[in-house]
Nucleic acid binder design. Structure first.
Length: 352
DNA sequence: CACTCGTGGGG
DNA sequence: TCCCCAAGAGT
C-alpha cells in the first residue's frame, strides 16, 4: 500500500499536468473548476474558466448576478443545470455561511450541484482533507487495477471503498489529483500506456493482458430520433421572435427559436404553424426553408428543420414558455442560446 | 433507481 | 457515419 501511494505520487511529481485551477487556493475558484469539469473534458473547460472568474470574482458576485448573465457565461458548456445550481449554491453560501465556502463535508453536500465526488474533490484540493473521489478517470483506473469483472456502474460502492482505502492520508490533495492525471494521461480508455504506468507492477488487468478490454461496458439501446419544426418569425419591422424555455429541464432558462416535434403524417409547415399557435398564440405564414441542423443530445437525436415565417397577427403570449420577445439580429447575442440554435443565428447572419 | 441532462472529440 | 464517453448530480 505504501509503495503504491509512493510510486503514484512520485510519478505525479514528474508527469502531473499543469492546470489553471491547481494554481488556485481560493475554494470558490476550485469549486467552479470542479463543476465545470463534471462530464466535461479539461480542454473544453479551460477557455471558460478564467473568463468565469473574471466575470464573477467572488461567491458574492455570483450570488447577486442575474441568472441570465450566469447562463450567458456558461453558454456552450452544456448541462446547464450546473450553471443554475452554481448560482443557487452561491446564494446558499451567502445566506447560510456569510459568503464563506464551508469546510465540512456534510455542509458542502447540502450545496446545489455538489455530490460525493465533487465534494471530495473540492475539500481535498482546497483544504487537503482526506476525502476520496470517484470520477470517470478513477473508475477506469481502479477497474483495471483490480480487473473488475463487471461494468463500473454495477460496482459503485466497491469502487468507492477501494478509493477510500487507497487515498494517502498524508497527501490527500496530491493523491486525488495524481489518480485523475493517471487516468487522463496514462490509463486512457483507448490504448493505455502501460509501459509508462507507475502501477504496472500492481495492475491485475495488465498482468492478465486485459487492459484493452477493461473497464467492461454495457450495451446501450439506439437513441430515438425526433424531427423538429423551427420558426424564425419576422414582423414588418424586421424584428425576430424568440422565447425563453422553462426554468428547469432540458436547456432550462435558455432562449430559442420556437417550434416543436413534427407528428406522424404532418408536414413541416403544418407543424410549425400549429406549434406557434399552441406555444405563443399567434398566426404566422411559413415561408422559405433556412437551414436544417442535425444535433445529438445524450439521450436522443434531433433534426431541426428551420423555416422563415411571417408574422400575421395575434398578441404573442408565453403559453408553453417563460417569456417571448421581439429582438434585432444585433442584440440577439446578449441572450444565452443552446448550440444548435447558435447555428441558426449564424445562418441568419450569412443571409443578410 | 433508472432516467434525465449538452457538447465535442476520438476511433 | 455511428458509437462511446468525458473531473456527475438531481429526481
Amino acid at each position: 500500500m505504501t509503495e503504491l501511494r509512493r510510486s503514484l505520487l512520485e510519478w505525479y511529481g514528474r508527469q502531473g499536468r499543469d492546470l489553471p485551477w491547481r494554481h488556485q487556493s481560493d475554494p470558490y475558484a476550485i469549486w467552479v473548476s470542479e463543476i465545470m469539469l463534471q462530464q466535461t473534458q479539461v480542454k473544453t473547460v479551460i477557455p471558460y474558466y478564467q473568463r468565469w472568474l473574471d466575470r464573477f470574482p467572488t461567491i458574492k458576485d455570483l450570488a447577486i448576478a442575474d441568472l441570465q448573465t450566469v447562463l450567458k457565461a456558461w453558454e456552450g458548456l452544456g448541462y446547464y443545470a450546473r450553471a443554475r445550481n452554481l448560482h443557487k449554491a452561491a446564494g446558499q453560501i451567502v445566506r447560510d455561511y456569510n459568503g464563506v465556502f464551508p469546510q465540512r463535508l456534510d455542509e458542502v453536500l447540502t450545496l446545489a450541484g455538489i455530490g460525493r465526488t465533487t465534494a471530495g474533490g473540492i475539500l481535498s484540493a482546497a483544504f487537503n482533507q482526506p476525502w476520496s473521489i470517484l470520477d470517470g478517470n478513477v473508475k477506469r483506473v481502479l477497474s483495471r487495477l483490480v480487473a473488475l469483472p463487471v461494468p463500473p456502474k454495477k460496482a459503485i460502492e466497491q469502487l468507492w471503498q477501494l478509493s477510500d482505502t487507497l487515498i494517502d492520508p498524508q497527501h490527500p490533495r496530491d493523491f486525488n489529483q495524481a489518480l485523475m492525471d493517471l487516468g487522463a494521461i496514462v490509463c486512457t480508455r483507448s490504448r493505455p500506456s502501460c509501459d509508462r504506468c507507475p502501477w504496472m507492477p500492481y495492475c491485475q488487468a495488465y498482468s492478465q493482458g486485459m487492459q484493452a478490454q477493461l473497464p467492461m461496458r454495457e450495451s446501450s439501446p439506439p437513441l430515438p430520433h425526433k424531427r423538429i419544426g423551427v420558426a424564425v418569425i419576422r414582423n414588418d419591422e424586421g424584428l425576430i421572435l424568440i422565447d425563453r424555455r422553462p426554468a428547469n429541464g432540458l436547456l432550462g432558462g435558455l432562449w430559442e427559436f420556437p417550434g416543436g416535434k413534427i407528428e406522424p403524417n404532418e408536414t413541416v409547415e403544418d407543424c410549425i404553424r400549429r406549434e406557434i399557435l399552441e406555444e405563443i398564440g399567434i398566426d404566422i405564414e411559413v415561408e422559405d426553408h433556412l437551414i436544417s441542423i442535425d444535433h445529438a443530445y445524450t439521450h436522443f437525436r434531433v433534426t431541426l428543420i428551420v423555416h422563415y415565417c411571417r408574422y400575421l397577427g395575434g398578441e404573442p403570449k408565453p403559453i408553453q414558455c417563460e417569456e417571448v420577445r421581439w429582438v434585432t439580429l444585433e442584440e440577439i447575442d446578449r441572450f444565452p442560446f443552446p448550440k444548435a440554435n447558435t447555428k441558426i443565428i449564424e445562418a441568419l447572419r450569412q443571409n443578410n
